[in-house]
Structures are given as C-alpha cells and as structure tokens.
Design a protein around this nucleic acid. Structure first.
Length: 553
RNA sequence: GCCCCCGUAGCUCAGAGGAUAGAGCGUCGGCCUCCGAAGCCGGAAGCCCAGGUUCGAGUCCUGGCGGGGGCACCA
C-alpha cells in the first residue's frame, strides 16, 4: 500500500505547511486515510480528510481541501491534485509513471505486490486440524483453503508464517477406529461380527482392512485393538496429507495433542488456572469459571472420571502458542466449533495472557449442488463428500478458487457443474484464460521467429490505450489487497481481486493487439512488454491463490 | 430461552464510516477476415423494517421481523 502511505504523508505535510502559512488554524492533525476512488472521474486516489477537519478548523471543507491542495508537494507518481465538493482531495496518477509499472511488474516478478508492513512479525495459522480417523471432507477443506491463502497473503506483507495442523491420535476416537478396523478385518476373514453405531461406517476402513489381509493374511487376528488403531491411523494420516497436497496445502507443523500430555503442558495449564482461582470442583468434576468472562455457564475442564475434556488440551495448546512468541495466531473454526472459539480465548485470558493475539476466523458451511440440486451429505451414513472425491471430479484449481471466493460469514454454494464448465461463466477459467491468452501471444511470437526478448527496453510511453492503463491501475491495488487481507484475516478479497484483474485484462486484450498487421513496430514491442507484465502478474496472483497458471487449457 | 452468522438486483454474492451502492449468473440488444468468442461492448433491475450516533450509514448502536447454525462431564 506504499502509494497510499506516501500520499498520506504528502497530505499530512501539506496540512502542516498550510498551518504554518496561516491558511489553516492550529490543531492536532488526525490520521490521514487515503482510498481508491470508485470513479476515474474523481482521479485515482482520494482523501476525505477535509470533511473530518471541518469541525477542528471551523472552516468549510472545500476551503480546507483547497488550502491543503495549494500546499501539496506532488510526488513524481502524481500528475494532479483536485478539490471536489463536498471537500474531497482527489489525486491523479501520472500516466508516464503508470506506464513504467510495466517494467516494475516484470522486474519484481513473483515478488510483485509485497510489502514490509508486518516485517519482523511472527504469525501462526491453524486450520483443518482433523483427527486421523477418516478422509478430509469439504467443511475442513474450506478452512484449509482459507488458511493457506491467508498464509500466502500474510507472508507477502512481511509475516514470518507457520501453517499448523493440530490433531489427536490418541483416546476414544482412535480406539473406535481400531475397533472398526479390527471388525472389518475379521469380516473379511469370514467372521460374523458387526459394527456398532459408534463405529466408523465409511468404506475407507474396509480398504485398510483389506490391505491388512493382503499383507498379513489372518496372522493379525489376535492383535489387540491398539494395533489396528495405530495401523489405520498412520494410513489415514498420510492420506490426509496427500489429499491436502493435491490442492497445494502443505503444513509446516503437525502438532500432536498427545504431546501436550507428555510434556506436562496440560497439567501445567490446569495448575496455573487453579492457582489463579479460575477452577472449582463440583460433583467430582473440575469446572472452569468461564462465567467470569461473560459465558452463560461454567464449563467442565476435567470430568468426574479424571479425564480432561477436549477443552483442557485446547487451552494448553494455546498456552503453548502464547509461549512460542507468535505476534498473531489465527484459528479457523467451522460451524460445528463456533461455540468453542470464545472459550479458548477465555482460557488464554485466565492464564494471564492478553488474548488479543489470537484471532478466530469462523466460517460457514459448504453446500454442494449438482444439476441444480443439493448434494446430500451425512457423516454417519458415510455419504459425505471427501476432498479426494472433489479433486477427482473438478480438479484442484476450482476447489482453491471457490472455497475462498466468499466471506467466511457466508455459506458457499459450490456448483459442481459450474466448477468444470469451460466458459466465461466459470470465474476460474475466466481468470486463468487471461494468463493463457498472454502465453498464446508469446507462443505465436516465437513461432513467427521473432526475437523472444525484443520487448526489452520498449518505449512504454506508447501504451496509451485506456484499457491497458486501467489494467495497470488494477495491478497497483495488489499490495493494498494483501495488506487488507493480512489485517482483517479475510482471504476472500484475493479471489475477488483476481477476478477484477481478469475483468480489467480482457478488454485490454481485445483493444491492444500485438501480432496484427496494422500494429506499427514500436507499439507492437511496447504491447508485448505489457503482456509480459500481465502474464507475470496473473502468475503471481494465481500463485497467491494456490492455483496453477496454465500456458494452455 | 441464550449465543453466533446472514438479510443488498429475479438468483448467488462483494462492499476498511465517504462521492452516482458494485460483480457474476439469468434477462434484453450489439460484436469474430489475423494473437484463445474459454472473449468484448451496451440496456433494464436492488440496500428487510423502525429508531439512534455522525458533516456523512448498506456499513456503527438499540429494538423488531425473516432465514441458517450452535447451546455435552463428545471433539
């Protein structure tokens, strides 16, 4: 967002100068905000500062704006500053500077749009965090794509990022997994045993059992449930990683809940909570006084059986996150965990930390539709849609795009038909096609035997087409978009930006041809340079989205 | 009953307190003799209701109405 920051500084200096000159009265200057204009008729950037100052200065906003404009020292990237009622300061980008951005984009390549706003800050994102008892399904996929996209954006604006997956491979669920696997194994060997309601119904466990039969025959019939649990867990855990890898999500850290017990952190956390007076015993259980933090009832930390609830390791885990020194920790929660998010923060606070470093991002469900009808899903019946099935059906790119194409607060309607449709109706293809069109130009250029580097040093001042300049303006917004995402933890802005960038590109492509016979040589080279920049920019943005940038489709 | 999310165009959604509320789909009309029409250009059409805060509210606050989700000593 460096242009906005520079502009804000220009305006602030101009206000000071106007005060010194006596054109404005003395007052403490508030923070100057700069925004993009919606309409080019208002220039490229606007500062609504004069309206804010009206009361302080006891002057009409238009007069204030004029006083500021008179004192503003225009930097080289601006050609004009204008005053518009009711008191906007409008700034216009210098065309020659805008044209030069073509070379800037080419030179900065995959680093284009980065900023140092959060340089030196450490952040962690936790998402997916499914236990290794079954395949990743689409709800977790949404959190994963949002988290991974956020990671890429935060990294681009200076954060040192850790993408983390929290899971539990011990306890009740794994026992059930072991039981299920053993029963399936026994069934395959002809024994008359049945699954209970509490067991996992999915066919993937039968596959694992079949693998056991193939490998070991009936020699494992006397192995305990733990053997089967361990075996299944390892296979499932690996296949979860493989599934996520298919949509370009790779975690830096897999954090095992069990380690919280082994390191003693769970008991440390409990002890600290007790010492700080947030725990009491009732009916044999240990309760956390969450009502002191606004909860409507207290919550159990340790059951009467002596076994901790999920809440206890969750709190201990965040205790450790705090100790690990992250400046920011982002947790993604699906709709089934919305209620637990505040309790974790209460735990952090009760442990003596300012919980504001933990940012909880909630997201709603994903509804799949096929042929205009909703695809019914049920975990119990084993008919839920898994990430793997989704990748098989529509491919990775549509999943990456659609899962991050809505605010987390909105439900997603994932249209399986649209996701694979190759037309302008499908935003995935619309965006990628921009890259493909650029690639086509360079392919044709090479086929015609021209010098592949002929555009180096081209005269960019020939790029006067309004659509071309508009594309460059849109390109300039990338940094602001990334900083906004890293500030609000809302990665969906990147999906919208990518679409807008493509929407700015296609008219330019129609209007500014390269290889057509009526394009004079110097202009042709300038345009070729432009498409080199455009191609680079789409590669950059698609990479930030974790999507591919195809040469052909 | 309590908590969370949502309510913006026929449909699906954007909208960091700022100017004439933006897209996509659908709809109506126009555009291919040369780089991907997998595209472009144009039209019609909208902030749930009532108060409040503010120079300024789709945005913030309060109260309604309507829809979705959650309220375990499961995770």
């Amino acid at each position: 967002m460096r242009i906005e920051y520079e502009l804000a500084a220009v305006v602030t200096e101009a206000i000071k100068a106007a005060q010194t000159a006596g054109d404005l009265p003395q007052f403490d200057i508030p923070e100057v905000t700069i925004e993009r204009t919606r309409d080019l008729a208002h220039g490229d950037y606007a500062a609504p500062i004069a309206m804010k100052l009206a009361r302080l200065a006891r002057m009409a906003p238009v007069k204030i704006a004029q006083a500021i404009a008179d004192q503003a020292a225009l930097p080289d990237f601006l050609s004009a500053v204008e005053v518009a009622p009711p008191g906007f300061l409008n700034f216009r980008l210098a065309t020659d500077w805008l044209q030069q951005q073509v070379d800037v984009i080419v030179e900065e390549g995959m680093g284009y749009g980065r900023s140092t706003l959060f340089a030196g800050k450490k952040a962690q994102i936790e998402c997916v965090s499914a236990n290794p008892t079954g395949p990743i399904h689409i709800g977790r996929t949404r959190g994963g794509v949002m988290g991974d996209t956020l990671k890429r954006a935060m990294k681009a604006v200076g954060y040192d990022m850790t993408l983390e997956y929290y899971y539990n491979d011990a306890g009740r669920q794994i026992t059930k997994l072991g039981e299920t696997t053993k029963i399936r194994y026994q069934q395959l060997l002809g024994q008359d045993v049945k699954l209970g309601d509490e067991h996992y119904q999915g066919a993937y466990i039968t596959d694992i059992a079949r693998e056991l039969v193939d490998k070991f025959g009936d020699s494992k019939l006397n192995e305990p449930v733990e053997f089967f649990g361990d075996y299944a867990k390892n296979i499932i855990s690996q296949s979860q990683k493989d599934s996520l890898k298919r949509i370009n999500i790779v975690f830096d850290v897999y954090y095992n809940e069990r380690s919280l017990y082994e390191s003693g952190r769970v008991w440390d956390a409990l002890k600290t909570l007790e010492e700080r007076g947030y725990v009491y015993e009732k009916e044999g259980a240990k309760w956390f006084k969450t009502t002191e933090f606004g909860d409507d009832k207290d919550r159990v930390l340790v059951k009467a059986t002596g076994e901790p609830t999920y809440r206890m390791p969750d709190i201990a885990y965040h205790y450790h996150k705090a100790e690990r020194g992250f400046d920011v920790v982002v947790d993604f929660f699906g709709p089934d965990h919305h209620a637990t998010a505040p309790q974790v923060l209460m735990g952090v606070q009760a442990l003596g930390y300012d919980p504001s470093f933990v940012k909880t991002v909630l997201h709603q469900i994903v509804n799949l539709t096929r042929g205009g009808k909703q695809v019914k899903m049920s975990t119990r019946a084993g008919t839920f849609v898994t990430l793997d099935e989704l990748v098989d059906e529509v491919g990775a790119d549509p999943i990456r795009y659609f899962m991050v194409s809505r605010s987390g607060n909105s439900e997603i309607l994932f249209d399986l038909d649209l996701a694979v449709e190759q037309s302008d109706k499908n935003p995935v293809y619309y965006i990628q096609n921009a890259h493909v069109r650029c690639a086509g130009i360079f392919r044709k250029w090479a086929e015609a035997g021209y010098d592949p580097n002929a555009d180096e040093g081209a005269d960019l001042s020939l790029l006067t087409n309004e659509y071309v300049l508009n594309f460059l303006r849109k390109g300039l917004e990338l940094t602001a978009v990334l900083e906004k995402i890293a500030t609000t933890y809302e990665p969906h802005h990147l999906a919208f930006y990518a679409y807008e960038l493509a929407a700015a590109f296609h008219p330019a492509y129609e209007a500014a041809r390269v290889l057509h016979s009526d394009v004079p040589e110097p202009l042709r080279l300038a345009r070729l340079r432009f498409y080199r920049a455009a191609k680079q920019l789409f590669a950059r943005v698609l990479d930030l989205l974790g999507m591919s940038a195809p040469e052909v489709m």
